[in-house]
């Protein structure tokens, strides 16, 4: 449940969320939509559909493979044809690659994980900037925000498989370099990385299959001081109206100064 009324925070903005059909991506897409953004859910497959044919989640679905540069070009072309601009990129798509330590990880597995978790974020950052420049040509009106989902495995060594740990460390530093470059070019584009711990999403499916879902969650939960994995379920956004009916006579409150406006490279 959002504590602050963000319902107009992102109105008029267009956001792409990769891996947005499930898990953290879906939760992000839901919050972005609730904040007023037009959201494009870019994923290999849409979320599970409901029986009436509608998709289980907000946003417009576009089939996308983050590891393919051609797919990025098509995605951007599609977004510019439909929504006409890009303001926000959430590079969230990722795979664990299955369990693997330094001894058991093969080169093939390493390359598969890097392609999605590292190269996919590199391409996503690159095409984000291209889209944001196309939206607001000429400095300083180029504007946007890129969020790259890294992991605690981008911070510590024992939180994930070997190839995943390396890829998430790459995302951590890539994000800082992108942030510094955009600042130096005087693009008003921020770039930050997010480092989730264990969150109960599809990335853990290999582990849930290996040890059972409940046992797996207990195992992961025990590794966090707080004692449980993180939750991804999109918050129920209050359907309470912000129209004049509930705010009779009062003018709308002015937009809040965003706390994150100074946040880049973090």
């Amino acid at each position: 449940m959002l504590l602050v009324d963000m319902s107009n925070e992102l109105s008029g903005r267009v956001a792409i969320v990769t891996g947005g059909a499930s898990g953290i991506g879906a939760a992000s897409a839901a919050l972005l939509a609730a904040a007023g953004a037009a959201v494009i859910v870019a994923d290999l497959q849409p979320a599970r559909g409901r029986s009436d044919g509608s998709r289980d989640g907000p946003g417009r679905f576009v089939a996308h493979d983050v590891a393919s540069e051609d797919s990025w070009k098509s995605l951007l072309a599609d977004v510019f044809a439909r929504e006409g601009r890009l303001d926000i990129m959430v590079n969230n798509a990722g795979i664990s690659g299955g369990p693997g330590n330094i001894e058991t990880t093969t080169v093939e597995n390493w390359q598969k994980v890097q392609a999605i978790d590292s190269e996919g974020v590199f391409l996503g950052s690159k095409y984000a900037i291209e889209g944001m420049k196309r939206t607001g040509p000429g400095k300083p009106t180029i504007k946007g925000s890129i969020v790259n989902v890294s992991s605690i495995a981008g911070l510590v060594g024992g939180a994930g498989p070997t190839a995943y740990t390396a890829a998430k460390g790459a995302v951590r530093l890539l994000s800082k370099s992108v942030a510094l470059y955009c600042a130096e070019q005087k693009y008003d584009i921020r770039c930050n990385s997010v480092h989730p711990g264990g969150v109960d999403t599809a990335i853990f499916n290999p582990l849930w299959q290996a040890m059972g879902h409940e046992q797996g969650k207990a195992f992961i939960g025990a590794r966090h001081p707080i004692g449980r994995p993180g939750n991804w379920a999109p918050p129920r956004i209050s359907s309470r109206s912000t129209s004049s009916r509930s705010r009779a006579g009062r003018p709308p409150s002015p937009p809040r100064r965003r706390n994150s406006a100074l946040c880049t490279g973090s």
């Binding site: 330590n101 330094i102 590292s118 495995a153 981008g154 911070l155 510590v156 060594g157 024992g158 994930g160 070997t162 740990t165 390396a166 890829a167 998430k168 460390g169 790459a170 995302v171 951590r172 530093l173 890539l174």
Partner: peptide, 10 residues
């Protein structure tokens, strides 16, 4: 950055 975290994993 990858080498930094890979090292810890190893």
């Amino acid at each position: 950055g990858a080498v930094r975290t890979l090292t810890k994993n190893v």
